[in-house]
Design a protein around this nucleic acid. Structure first.
Lengths: 259, 259
DNA sequence: TTGCGCAACTGGCTCAAGCCAGTCTATGGT
DNA sequence: ACCATAGACTGGCTTGAGCCAGTTGCGCAA
């Protein structure tokens, strides 16, 4: 039968989590180290295994710890090596790479990029998209779904919307890699040179689909970015919704306050 | 004794979570609605209360559900009404508000802003800060810790670093509200007009301290923003590390690709 | 020497029970 | 008419049990 001592004041699991957290922060455990097992923690703290487990789950949610089935719990290392910003859209940057902005950053970090064009289809624009493209909702657009990998780790998903009137009859409307000059090169050929961008950034927990599709460890949030590409006179012609895993990603913008 | 039927294939808790998730997404439960209680879920799914509980915890971590002790679980509403961007640093924007960039946005959203200056002290610059300020690590800086509230909900913490050589002898070195023209007004008076900014954005799970200090519900990530304020010739003179709750916050940048 | 298989470990998940602490409401006493 | 309170609900947390599924290494047999 459950013993049920009148659990003093502060939750037991919380206490174990704090102890482990302090141990990690103090350097007693360094990234990659193995933590004591659930069963060991339980006995050393005179609690149930479930309680020790709850404590570790808390640390997992904080992104401090990573579980490995059959092996143990390990202190997470926090890489954060992909940085994206304004510069990725500049012409010289695009000139160097075969894979567009993503590939440029990946190579700069010594990683091997891969882009997977999952689909390209003609659909009516949803409100979110239409608003940003400055068109009527329901107007046809091309929806391109790209998955981005660095060293075969899925990093982000980008869903690009381009008005059908622009993409019609071009490679942009086909579900294939766009090759050397990438999306923005193709658009430039069509007379749409990206000169201004708007980037709306939020963060949120990963959805279940993302966690499965991107093979995300628990406790990794997503950066949710709506990018709008505009011409010199601020006419939008392309919108992309990037969802990137926050543990590997950072955004880096520099801009004039007024321009 | 534990019954232990040979749990078929996919975890029970996962299944309950999926069912609830679908019900929420399909609109069967709308934001603010109360979900079935743990005990009810357990019986309707023929599981233990712990299992139902685990299912709901999953939804909480995804940000879909919010618990209220003694009342029940409720579908979360996602407000996201604070947006920050380049415009907050422009002179006309600053002119209208008593509270600087944050107050401007809060008022625009019909919320009552409050800024709390927690401390202002002279310390040697850490590497992170020194690098961004373009000074030697260890050089003295003023560290100002500000807490920002909208309708008394803690929204973000901003820790500003200004070289001591600039702040020395001014209101910037004192732990008090800077009044009508705020930080950037004061800096402008000293000859440091903000003309370029750099903003480095990441997201991460909230730390325990943040969760407690900001009174955060579980499953709310943080947006971690390093802001650098620069003069027209790109000389940095101020660095601020904003940590903002991601559920209420968004960033909105627009900029030229080359300038 | 090789390699197979059996412990002995790890986390993953479930169960059933029970106490604590909030919230709400209906009821009964003042 | 008021208010206090008891009971019935809610989530919060813990216990200790037990099976499943990965991982690892050791020892034994071929």
């Amino acid at each position: 039968m459950p013993d049920q001592r009148p659990h003093g004041d502060n939750a037991e699991a919380r206490a174990i989590a704090s102890a482990l957290r302090d141990a990690i922060h103090s350097g007693e455990y360094t990234p990659g180290d193995k933590l004591p097992s659930e069963r060991v923690l339980a006995t050393t703290y005179h609690g149930a295994r479930n309680t020790a487990r709850a404590a570790i789950q808390e640390l997992i949610q904080e992104g401090l710890v990573r579980p490995e089935h059959g092996r143990g719990y390990f202190v997470r290392e926090r890489p954060r090596w992909m940085r994206f910003g304004r510069l990725r859209y500049t012409t010289p940057m695009r000139a160097v790479t075969r894979h567009g902005p993503f590939g440029a950053e990946a190579r700069a970090q010594g990683k091997t990029p891969r882009v997977e064009v999952r689909s390209a289809e003609r659909i009516p624009a949803e409100a979110h998209v239409a608003e940003r493209l400055g068109i009527e909702p329901g107007t046809d657009v091309v929806r391109r779904e790209n998955w981005y990998y660095a060293d075969e780790i899925p990093m982000q998903v980008g869903i690009t919307y381009i008005p059908w009137s622009i993409a019609q009859g071009t490679a942009l409307a086909k579900a294939e890699n766009l090759g050397k000059r990438s999306l923005y090169g193709r658009l430039e050929d069509l007379g749409y040179t990206i000169a201004n961008i708007r980037e709306e950034v939020t963060a949120r927990p990963a959805t279940r689909e993302e966690a499965e599709g991107l093979d995300l460890p628990a406790g990794v949030p997503m950066i949710d970015l709506w990018h709008t590409g505009m011409t010199a006179d601020k006419h939008p012609f392309e919108v992309t919704n990037f969802c990137m895993r926050a543990d590997y990603s950072a955004l880096d913008y520099d801009m004039p306050v007024e321009y």
